[in-house]
Design a protein around this nucleic acid. Structure first.
Lengths: 209, 209
DNA sequence: TACGGCCGAAGTGCATGCAATACTGTGCGG
DNA sequence: CCGCACAGTATTGCATGCACTTCGGCCGTA
């Protein structure tokens, strides 16, 4: 059992707040206020902020502390293809046999997504679980780390624009087809479809914004 | 002009020490001793260590501080293809025209490498400069950040095994051919050659260790 | 009005202090 | 001889303290 460090919990909490906008984009973070609000001292808070800055979720401005970068459509257009390629790589670096064993779990999550969509609920956490499961057999921990680090940056944009029912149905269908390709198994096709899934999401975002 | 933070200088210094072994692999870092040795307090030192742990150069063990992970041949076999794919991606995401303008500078560095090889000098920093210049036209800052973060991990292994004259000559030749492909410009070929360059280096390492 | 310099308040960056946890070595029992 | 318990030390994780920088408002001047 791993004892949890305050700075990790804080990093998680701050990430959540940045993603849902409770900590606004294009704003500075006041360490004293935030520390008081979270009921901790500045030290572990700063440690968490430094970690987040190293991952790119925040930027550190010497003498001015930490900033939440502003939204930038251009950045979204960089992040989606990046995550697409990284996930594609992770998929191609997984054992086909191991992957085939995942299809049941994957499709179950997809089914939950369909149900949640009817209920007009939140799909993003289910989508996360699906992708995480899909990549869980990748044998390259460093690649997985990079993906884990990059996705929050992307989720900032996803969270803003998510909710298109049209696109959600389409995406659910794409998930099913990816799982199918894995069952064959045809990883090249699966990886290709996975990239398309991300890129199409970006295209959908671009059309809106 | 960017005022420099102590934690950044420290992170740089610690990275250097880990890479050249002054901080041994598979050892714990004693914050008090290291802080005293570096003439700073534990606070900015810890901040630097946290950043390095987030990048994967160190690992954080709750209650036990920070550890330098042991050398693991398996890890090297994961890192080289990863960096290869990342750099390949960065190259393919560069503008061919911009890249073509780099060939002069690239070849100059390659020439310096050849000269340095005759002198039996250090090639790794020149190699770094070459790769950095090659990727300098990539328009995806997040991808470049991931590469910057991952390369030190790899350099830990590179530094251990570097020095094969045979492989160095071969690598220099590969650099020239990559620059050629860029001049054409034929980025697909260049990216392919770049991947090969990394993978062959790994193969050479594997043969030794 | 627009601009620039000064002054007080606010905030960061680093140092230090403290309590809880983890390590080391010793002695005892099996 | 080996394993375990225990006491003392060392070390981490977090809190607090302090100095320097930055920010915001006010004034004076052009």
């Amino acid at each position: 059992m791993t004892r949890n460090l305050l700075r990790r919990d804080l990093a998680e909490e701050i990430t959540a707040r940045v993603l849902d906008g409770r900590i606004a984009a294009d704003s500075r973070i006041n360490e004293v206020h935030l520390a008081r609000e979270l009921g901790v001292s500045r030290t572990p808070l700063r440690e968490a902020l430094i970690g987040l800055a190293d991952r790119g979720l925040l930027v550190s401005a010497p003498g001015r502390g930490f900033l939440v970068p502003p939204f930038d459509p251009e950045e979204a257009r960089r992040l989606y293809p990046l995550v697409a390629e990284l996930e594609s790589l992770a998929l191609r670096w997984s054992s086909p046999q191991d992957l085939a064993g995942l299809t049941g779990g994957l499709d179950r999550i997809t089914a939950e997504m369909a149900a949640e969509l009817d209920r007009q609920g939140d799909l993003s956490t289910l989508d996360d679980r699906w992708h995480t499961l899909l990549l869980s057999r990748c044998t390259n921990p460093h690649l997985l780390r990079l993906i884990e680090q990059t996705k929050p940056l992307l989720k900032r944009y996803d969270a803003r624009y998510f909710g298109g029912v049209e696109r959600s149905r389409e995406s659910i269908d794409e998930h099913l087809r990816i799982a199918e390709a894995i069952r064959v198994p045809d990883l090249a096709t699966a990886a290709e479809l996975l990239v398309r899934n991300w890129v199409k999401t970006l295209a959908y975002l671009d059309d809106m914004g």
